[in-house]
Amino acid sequence: MNKPKLIISSAYAAIITIIFVAVITIWAELSVPLKDWLKSFSGHHWTSKSIFSVLLYAVAAIILYLSLQKHSDDRLKRALGFLLAFTALGTVILTLFFTGHHFQLF
């Protein structure tokens, strides 16, 4: 197993998952049909998001691992740096969104 490639794949799959969770969460809060569909999929919108996020992370990591041909040391560091940044960004965006949503700013 190529460990640096595994780390890069996991980091980018995690970033994709964070973006997915942030986008679908905000979208579902603003779109009743989407939230209803998420509820109907598993019985609860959060359970559906949980299932999709796990599947997305696993599938994205596998596809990236199999498709990455070459990787440099810089690419590995960049992927982990991006993951750190997207984790912070995702946390801030969701906190601000629900704060704004509570105060009916959107």
Partner: peptide, 8 residues
């Protein structure tokens, strides 16, 4: 929702 970031 941010709990979903933890595992990946």
């Amino acid at each position: 929702h941010i709990f979903l970031f933890v595992i990946p």
